[in-house]
Design a protein around this nucleic acid. Structure first.
Length: 426
RNA sequence: GCGGUUGUAGCUCAGUUGGUUAGAGCGCCAGGUUGUGGCCCUGGAGGUCGUGGGUUCGAGCCCCAUCAUCCGCCCCA
């Protein structure tokens, strides 16, 4: 009998998984932290479908990008429409923002999302065909202070998780006013040695010259060493914005580097672009990437609205934490484990459990009808702080033996006393 | 799309120049304690050696193919 397995590049998340990025308790903990910090900064959740019209991504991300040209899961619906499993989170969030007229609320709309992202790529460490992103989008402000706040929120998340040693890289990729001049300058600079560059960069030279700077090919890097810097071509508006953004970041106490080579893989970015990397992650070192996209809402058919956001790969965060052995605290799944002795007690077990649960105490028992020794083993393995032991003696006296597993100490108490004391501790 | 790695018990792996019934640790189950977990001791269950073909008297080991896995390039979270 052939066994089924999760498709290449996908993974399950399940209780007790050894790999942190597959462990339910750790996922739950991280998601809670994301939600708390998002709420703390005024962001509210938006949930969008996993499938979207294919055109949404070709329009937003750009026809020439790798994502659109070769990494999308695209299929035809029975009705004949072309649908795509979302390969990124910003375009769907903005589609929802426009479709539901969220902009009509006025002010700045702050949205966050947590959900799966699909890209057809060759899996490797930290890269999956289905991964999960936490992302935020702030729509309606062109104030550079919000650029700094967005970066700061990402950094706050990592700090909260105990992830240090991070490198934050910032850049300005300009705007439609100044980009053409820079693009032309870069093309003229590279023209004499196009033929000496890697095949990829020769392609980029024609299709998307800015991406040439992103090449990791050592030969390309050497050839492009003296390449013109965007900062010398940037228009006054973009320069002012970039300076204010950096000043605000500095004022918050954030450490960052200016990386004039930082060019992100989506066509929609304007002005601010940033990336947060971890040196502990291996080849796929980017934990978070984002930037400003002042023309995108309009491009997608909404009112002219500036925006900025980021996406953060949750699997990569978990992998980085695992490598540093920084395990987030997770509460034990159970508080009490009931151990019964004999037929009479066994038949009472479920009723006792129910009383605990109705009082809000997570409790369980061993349903296999096994020996006390086996039940105690199960209690220990469950990590519940307390074992409640019930036998004929306890049934007669109306109380239970409360064993504190960590110390081995035992006392007698009625179930109500145990409940009152346990709830008092929370 | 390209390059490399590894596939033996639930997990991590060992298996000498191809040679009888394929091993260890951990985990699991049970007993040692007919009312007590974690430590210790004893025992037990569990494997078509990824799959298919080939070479050979004989293949976990050699050859071919295939599937899967992980890692790197590319790209990105």
């Amino acid at each position: 009998m052939a066994k089924f397995q999760a498709p290449k590049g996908t993974h399950d998340v399940y209780p007790g998984a050894r790999k942190w990025h597959e462990n339910t308790a750790l996922w739950n903990r991280l998601e809670t932290i994301f939600r708390e910090l998002a709420a703390l900064h005024g962001y509210q959740e938006v949930r969008t479908p996993v499938i979207e019209p294919t055109g949404l991504f070709t329009r937003a991300v750009g026809e020439g990008t790798d994502i659109v040209s070769k990494e999308m899961y695209t299929f035809e619906s029975k009705g004949g429409d072309s649908l795509t499993l979302r390969p990124e989170g910003t375009a769907p969030a903005l589609r929802a923002y426009i479709e539901n007229s969220i902009y009509a609320e006025g002010g700045v709309a702050k949205l966050f999302y947590i959900g799966p992202i699909f890209r057809y790529e060759r899996p490797q460490e930290g890269r999956f065909r289905q991964h999960t992103q936490f992302g935020i989008e702030a729509l309606g402000s062109r104030d550079p202070r919000i650029d700094a706040e967005v970066v700061w929120l990402a950094l706050s998340i990592y700090r909260r998780l105990g992830l240090d040693r991070l490198v934050t890289k910032v850049n300005s990729v300009g705007c439609p006013n100044c980009r053409p001049a820079y693009r032309d300058a870069l093309v003229e600079f590279a023209r004499p040695f196009v033929g000496q560059m890697s095949a990829d960069n020769q392609r980029r030279f024609n299709e998307n010259p800015l991406r040439m700077l992103d090449s990791k090919d050592p030969g390309d890097q050497k050839l492009l060493e003296g390449a013109p810097s965007y900062i010398d071509y940037i228009c006054d508006e973009c320069r002012t914005h970039f300076e204010a953004f950096k000043a605000n970041l500095t004022a918050l106490g954030a450490q960052y580097e200016i990386d004039s080579r930082l060019v992100r893989g989506f066509d929609y970015y304007t002005k601010t672009a940033f990336e947060i990397q971890s040196p502990d992650l291996g080849a796929q070192s980017t934990l978070c990437g984002g930037g400003r996209y002042d023309g995108l809402v309009e491009e997608l058919g909404g009112p002219s609205t500036p925006g900025i956001g980021f996406g953060l790969g949750i699997e990569r965060v978990l992998i980085a934490l695992e490598k540093l052995n920084r395990r987030p605290d997770t509460a034990p799944p159970l508080t009490a484990f009931i151990v019964t002795l004999g037929e009479n007690a066994a038949s009472q077990g479920l009723a006792l459990l129910t009383r605990l649960r109705e009082a809000g105490i997570a409790a369980d028992m061993d349903y296999a009808g096994r020996s006390m020794k086996a039940q105690m083993r199960a209690a220990g393995k469950s990590a519940a702080p307390y074992a409640l032991i019930v036998g004929d003696d306890e049934l007669a006296s109306g109380d239970v033996v409360v064993k504190t597993m960590a110390t081995g100490e035992q006392t007698k108490a009625t179930l109500d006393e145990f409940i009152a004391k346990t709830i008092g501790q929370e």
